[in-house]
């Protein structure tokens, strides 16, 4: 394994896999700067499509909706998720295993099934569709991730710190505010950003819960793709993917994907 040729080969292979993962996105990004609507080469560089984007009210409107839904989702999911993580860490109780296992379905069941089930139930029960329904759905998807991320951080917490604070005369609320929460902060931030990313990039659930005229950016992009390719979609897609990759790189500063290394 220490022989150089194998090492070289291994690196080339890794390079090819990375090319497979990133090249389509880079091609799309390049084409969003191409003035030719038929993607002629060589690329004739232009910002026209981005300028057009700024005047596309439908896309702007749906971008606003996406940000709104993602922000509300982030607040609700991080608060509820952190509270549950604290309970899991602090207490032993009979249904703990069951509750932890119940986090699995929102992640594991195909979104098509959860999405259509939500559509059917929300419509039937009178909750209805639209942004509030999307927030309901997005929080359900984001919650398990928040709990996993926050729990990973909380594991390293030493309960003696709380006991020490208490013995020095801190009230229960002061213990939480000055000891527990500051320690949890990095996990909380990572969980919140993750929730934002999950919601902002979510397409399937939003698609089933959208009503004509009220949709999020991914739903609007999907509709536009089905109508036919235009460089304008490339432009907005490039912006969205650049944004979500940046967001995830920031998350990775707070939380190690794939556990301890």
């Amino acid at each position: 394994m220490k022989a150089r040729p194998t090492n070289m080969l291994a690196r080339i292979y890794l390079g090819l896999v990375l090319a497979f993962l990133y090249l389509p996105i880079l091609v799309m990004a390049a084409m969003s700067f191409n003035s030719s609507q038929f993607y002629m080469l060589p690329i004739d560089w232009t910002f026209d499509w981005y300028v057009k984007l700024a005047h596309n009210t439908r896309l702007l409107e749906s971008t606003r909706n996406s940000i709104l839904v993602a922000m509300v989702t982030t607040v609700i999911a991080s608060v509820l998720g952190t509270a549950a993580s604290i309970a899991f860490f602090r207490y032993e109780f009979r249904f703990k295993k069951v509750l932890q296992a119940a986090l699995f379905p929102p992640i594991a069941i195909p979104w098509l099934i959860t999405g259509t089930a939500m559509l059917l139930f929300f419509f039937w029960s009178g909750i209805g569709r639209g942004l509030h329904a999307m927030i309901l759905g997005h929080v359900a998807l984001a919650l398990p991730y928040v709990i996993i991320v926050v729990s990973a951080r909380i594991k390293g917490f030493d309960p003696d710190l709380e006991a020490a604070a208490r013995s020095l005369g801190a009230s229960p609320w002061q213990v939480i505010r000055h000891v527990t929460l500051p320690y949890l902060a990095p996990g909380f931030i990572a969980g919140a950003l993750f929730a934002f990313a999950v919601s902002f990039d979510q397409f399937v659930i939003s698609y089933f819960l959208s009503v004509p005229g009220v949709s999020t950016l991914p739903v609007e992009i999907y509709t536009a793709i089905k109508k036919g390719f235009t460089p304008e979609i490339n432009a907005i897609s490039t912006l969205v993917i650049a944004f979500s990759i940046t967001l995830l790189v920031i998350v990775s500063r707070f939380y190690r994907f794939g556990g301890d290394r």
């Binding site: 890794l14 896999v17 990375l18 993962l21 990133y22 090249l23 389509p24 996105i25 091609v27 799309m28 084409m31 993607y39 990313a197 990039d201 397409f203 991914p218 992009i221 999907y222 793709i225 390719f229 979609i233 490339n234 897609s237 969205v240 993917i241 979500s244 990759i245 995830l248 790189v249 990775s252 994907f257 794939g258 290394r261």
Partner: peptide, 29 residues
């Protein structure tokens, strides 16, 4: 490198699929 491999997975799935249309279409990349 590990991060570079993992991060696309969490990014927008719809757009990643869409980007293949640029590559695969007739007279595409």
């Amino acid at each position: 490198l590990f991060l570079m491999v993992i991060i696309p997975f969490w990014s927008n799935a719809l757009i990643r699929v869409f980007s293949w249309t640029m590559v695969l279409r007739g007279n595409g990349m």
